[in-house]
């Protein structure tokens, strides 16, 4: 849930820059919140900057709500499939699988895929098909790691129908590789 927390923290920090709790004795407001003029250099009611910040607050709010709805959809899929394939996942605790799924799903949703699906496979992995622009990425997030396993997650990528290099590594390396992929420019050399 770290991404959600980050989004919430980001929104909180924007809020703090405009409003602050405090005495309203010297203000023209009667509410609990007062305008913190010190944080903004321009007049309150005529500031383009304030409008911009307000827009960004509402954009963030919409984005968060959008992410939540998507998260719930995939979470429901995940739960149904876990119950359906309970035999394949007999050695894996639901809570552990859920925690791992939350980690990868939250990360992938922040890239706002055009289309995405989540499936559980018989070999104990969460399998995502992620489509954005020209890219199709097939991601396996393994749940049955053993002590000698270094690769927690792997992906194969296609740019239209052309195959690009694949990746395997732990979750932190995956985040870097996937983020690099999403900002990849075809005219540049391809590196994860």
């Amino acid at each position: 849930m770290s991404t959600m927390k980050n989004t919430i923290n980001k929104i909180s920090s924007i809020n703090k820059s405009i409003f602050s709790f405090g005495s309203n004795a010297d203000s023209y407001s009667t509410g609990a919140y007062i305008y913190n003029q010190g944080s903004v250099n321009t007049p309150f009611f005529h500031s383009a900057k304030i409008k911009q910040i307000h827009n960004s607050i509402s954009d963030e709010g919409i984005k968060r709500s959008h992410l939540n709805k998507k998260f719930i959809k995939y979470y429901t899929d995940f739960k149904e499939q876990f119950e359906k394939h309970i035999e394949s996942f007999s050695e894996i605790e639901f809570e552990f699988a859920q925690e791992e799924m939350t980690k990868s799903l939250n990360f992938l949703l922040t890239f706002d895929p055009d289309k995405m699906s989540l499936e559980l496979t018989f070999d104990c992995c969460i399998y995502y098909t992620f489509l954005k622009g020209n890219y199709t990425v097939y991601i396996s997030h393994f749940l049955d790691l053993e002590e000698y396993d270094y690769e927690e997650i792997t992906f194969a990528v296609f740019n239209n129908d052309d195959k690009l290099p694949s990746f395997a590594g732990d979750f932190e390396s995956f985040k870097i590789a996937f983020s690099n992929l999403m900002v990849y420019k075809p005219e540049l050399e391809f590196h994860y």
Binding site: T121, D123, C125, Y127, T129, T136, Y138, I139, S140, F142, E146, Y148, D149, Y150, E151, T154, F155, A156, F158, D161, K163, S166, A168
Partner: peptide
């Protein structure tokens, strides 16, 4: 067996991806 299993996991994803794509 351990080495084979490590390769197998990665190649399983690769094989699925090729079939799903084409």
């Amino acid at each position: 067996e351990r080495e084979r299993k490590r390769f197998k996991k990665k190649l399983a994803n690769e094989a699925r991806a090729l079939i799903a794509q084409y």
